[in-house]
Structures are given as C-alpha cells and as structure tokens.
C-alpha cells in the first residue's frame, strides 16, 4: 500500500459572490510514478468536479500548469509525489490575476509582456521567397535556442521579490527575451532602442538581484547570466545616454 497523501488546496471562485478564499483538504493513496497531473485529475474526477486547474501538454513543454507546490513555483505535471512529503499544499501563482482555485491568467500577462518588449525581429528587410536564407553560425543558433526555450510558465515571475511588490515590474522572462533578440543579428535594433524598452526601474534596473528566478526556472534557462549581461549593457547605455544629454546641453 502506498502512502496516504494529504493535499491542502486553495479554493476561491471569484465569480461566485458567496465564495471566500479558503483551503480544502483531499486525500489520495499514492500510486507508482504519481505526478500532480494524476493527482489533480483524480481529485476532480473522483472527489470534487468543481476544482479548477490548468493542464495542457502534461509533458513539461507548454508551461500551463505552474502552481505553488509547498511554497515553491513549479510545473505540476512534472512534479512527482514521491519527492514530496505526505502533506502537500497547493496554491495558485501570485502576481497573476486569479481565474479560480489554482488557475491564473497567464495569457493576458504574457501577451502584454511580449508587446512591451516588442518580442519580434525588427528589420527593414522584406522577405524574398526566392532567396537563400541568410547564413548563421550553428553555435549562434544554439545560443539563441538556449534562451528561446522559455515556455512562459510564470514561475520566475512568481518567485520574483520585485514582481510581488511592483506589479508593473517586467521580470526575468522579459529580460531573457530582450537578451535573446540582442544576441540575434537578424534583429536590427540598436542598444538605445533596447534601452528604451528595459532601461528603467520597471525594467532591468529594478532587479533586486535575489535570483529566485534562476532557482525555480523549470527549463534551467541561465537567467542569472543573462540578467548580469543585460544590466551591464544597459548600464553602459545609461552612461552614454547621460553623456549625450550633457554634451547636447553644452552645445
């Protein structure tokens, strides 16, 4: 017989005027290779059909199922119960707008983020269907892919001290995205244009350097390195910015 697991799950339905935030308790016997994907679906199908949560790929690829698991943000689908104690507390991610129970609105947040950092290749060129592709070193393609692996799950945002205090803070996910485009020669933006995007307190200069983001990233993206590089680059851009200002005033 497996362990008797106790799950304390946050419950709140904002659409129901009588609903108040509270914790509900469910019990399940642990089975072989049990994940929180199995747990939550079993609870919904066998015990409580009202429980709201999100899953999609159930393979750690799509980023839908990030929740707080015993105080730490992670993907529920790849979290095995055997690595957890008998009592497990599940909460929705902070920072994001609540939809219900464990489900939060990451879609709106990330669309806004992508608009804010202008997450696309900026170029004056026009695609020519008859032309051979522009060459790129394979090592560079690998380096871009390393950062492109972000699945926008929201774990880094949930674990960010600054994002929890300042809702408009862009977060590591945005900095990583900017770093990805700075690295890409197809993107013709100049340093000062990136500075316009992230050179502020809501941007890279607001980062407290706590690096919770790096600790919790389920894809192990090297956020610490990218934040460091971006901060230095934008720091220099700020100095240049200042010089240009002073210089133009003198004129």
């Amino acid at each position: 017989m497996g362990r008797q697991l106790k799950f304390n799950i946050f419950r709140y339905n904002p659409l129901d005027p009588e609903s108040v935030p509270h914790m509900d308790t469910y019990r399940l016997e642990e089975t072989d290779a049990m994940t929180l994907f199995i747990v939550l679906n079993r609870i919904r199908e066998e015990q409580d059909p009202t429980l709201i949560f999100d899953f999609m790929c159930r393979a750690g690829i799509c980023g839908s199922c990030a929740i707080m698991i015993n105080g730490r943000p992670d993907l529920a689908c790849h979290t095995k119960t055997k690595n957890l104690p008998e009592e497990i507390t599940l909460l929705p991610l902070p920072v994001f707008k609540m939809i219900g129970d464990l489900s939060v609105d990451t879609g709106t947040w990330f669309r806004h983020m992508n608009e804010r950092v202008q997450s696309w290749v900026h170029t004056d060129k026009v695609f020519d269907p008859n032309a051979t592709e522009e060459p790129m070193r394979n090592e560079l393609a690998d380096e871009i892919y390393e950062l492109e692996r972000c699945i926008e799950c929201g774990c880094c945002v949930a674990a960010c001290g600054k994002a929890n205090m300042l809702p408009s803070f862009m977060g590591a996910v945005a900095f990583n995205r900017v770093a990805r485009f700075i690295m890409d020669p197809r993107d013709e933006r100049k340093t000062n244009e990136y500075y316009e995007v992230v050179g502020s307190e809501e941007g890279i200069f607001g980062c407290l350097g706590l690096l919770g983001c790096e600790d919790v990233c389920p894809k192990d993206i090297p956020l610490q390195d990218q934040l460091g590089i971006l901060r230095r680059k934008m720091g220099w851009a700020a100095v240049q910015h200042l010089f240009t200002k002073v210089f133009s005033k003198k004129k």
Partner: peptide, 9 residues
C-alpha cells in the same frame, strides 16, 4: 528563418 527561428545550421 526570416521571422527569427534559430534553425540548426
């Protein structure tokens, strides 16, 4: 590729 895919080379 033009839109930004880092295809392996």
């Amino acid at each position: 590729a033009f839109w930004g895919i880092p295809w392996n080379r």
